[in-house]
């Protein structure tokens, strides 16, 4: 065959390939708007404490075009409850999971047993051992030491004795809570602070009762709550005696209730993790994993701010604390 004929056949073949590819892409343009179903499982999902987190999720979903399914849950009382929900969501065809682990321990075996080939991002707390799954969490050790620092300032008011502190340590099976407590304890060591009592546990239902008992036995001057639910329980305890208590609570909080009592004066200082960013980055991370768009960072730490009564309504803190969706 002559060279010019080969060239012509080659040109027509190349044109056919180009035209075919263009036609294929044209036909697939209408169906290319693939939407991913992302399931979000967090404890007590309807709690106002998730307002900022959900707003971040919504913004992420809008930006990345994913369908969000925030599973309605009650306060988790155990791992089985959470696992049932996760299994059901996987069965229902979730493309990816954003998960707040009830327990950070021994999760890799369980999640591994699910043959989970779907992207998974942990929020609030990492698993233990760490670095098995992607996570988006605040710097929990920094939060613990920050709380210790705030308490230390108060302890200076007690020159004749040590400041007695009650600790609402929450679910210590959650790595985040464990890290906050460890860091807090390490940071107050050698300072004029004494832990009068500590309450740990899965649920927050009976914290108020337990506090009353502990306070009778060994009265704490102030209480440190390592999580939002614990802080709200502490608030409930003090408000049960009226609104006269001021600057008796320190803790981590994101709900408007905790902010209200900060504004009210009962809470002296509030550590507020940037839950909005957490929610947004969780969706972003999941999307990147789904589309393999780029290598997302395995573990992301979100910021937290220390807010006191004077700074609640300043421009920067306002934007982080109060959700826009009302």
């Amino acid at each position: 065959m002559k060279a010019d004929k080969i060239i012509i056949i080659l040109i027509i073949f190349i044109l056919a390939v180009i035209g075919g590819t263009a036609a294929w892409q044209l036909m697939n343009m209408s169906v290319s708007d693939e939407s991913y179903n992302v399931t979000v499982v967090v404890s007590n999902s309807s709690s106002p404490r998730w307002a900022n987190f959900k707003e971040g999720l919504s913004q992420g979903a809008a930006d990345y075009g994913v369908m969000l399914n925030v599973v309605t849950t009650a306060d988790f009382s155990g791992m089985k409850q959470e696992r049932n929900i996760v299994a059901k969501e996987i069965e229902n065809g979730a493309d990816a999971l954003i998960l707040q682990l009830f327990s950070s321990y021994n999760q890799s075996e369980y999640l591994g047993s699910l043959n989970l080939d779907k992207p998974l991002v942990l929020v609030e707390s990492d698993s233990n051992p760490e670095d098995v799954f992607s996570s988006i969490t605040p710097d929990n050790e920094a939060i613990g030491s920050k709380l210790a620092e705030l308490i230390s300032v108060k302890a200076k008011e007690y020159s004749d004795r040590k400041l007695k502190v009650g600790v609402l340590a929450g679910n210590q099976e959650e790595l985040a809570m464990y890290q906050r407590l460890s860091s807090f304890r390490d940071s107050i060591r050698g300072k004029n602070i004494e832990i009068a009592w500590q309450i740990s546990g899965y649920t927050n239902d009976d914290i108020e009762m337990q506090m009353k008992n502990y306070q009778k036995q060994n009265h704490a001057d102030c209480v440190v709550a390592l999580g939002n639910d614990q802080l709200e329980a502490g608030i409930d305890y003090y408000t049960s005696y009226g609104n006269q208590f001021k600057n008796v609570l320190y803790g981590v909080g994101v709900s408007e209730k905790t902010v209200y009592y900060l504004d009210n004066g009962m809470v002296a200082s509030l550590v507020v993790p940037d839950e909005y960013t957490c929610g947004y980055l969780a969706v972003k991370s999941v999307y990147e994993k789904l589309t393999h768009a780029q290598e997302s960072k395995k573990n992301i730490q979100i910021d937290h701010r220390i807010v006191d009564r004077a700074s609640i309504f300043n421009e920067t803190d306002e934007m982080m604390i109060f959700p826009r969706t009302q």
Binding site: I8, A16, G19, Q25
Partner: peptide, 16 residues
């Protein structure tokens, strides 16, 4: 895409 498709088919048709 439509232009690429049209041009490809057009050029092939013109050559033939």
């Amino acid at each position: 895409l439509y232009a690429i498709l049209t041009i490809s088919v057009g050029i092939a048709a013109i050559i033939l």
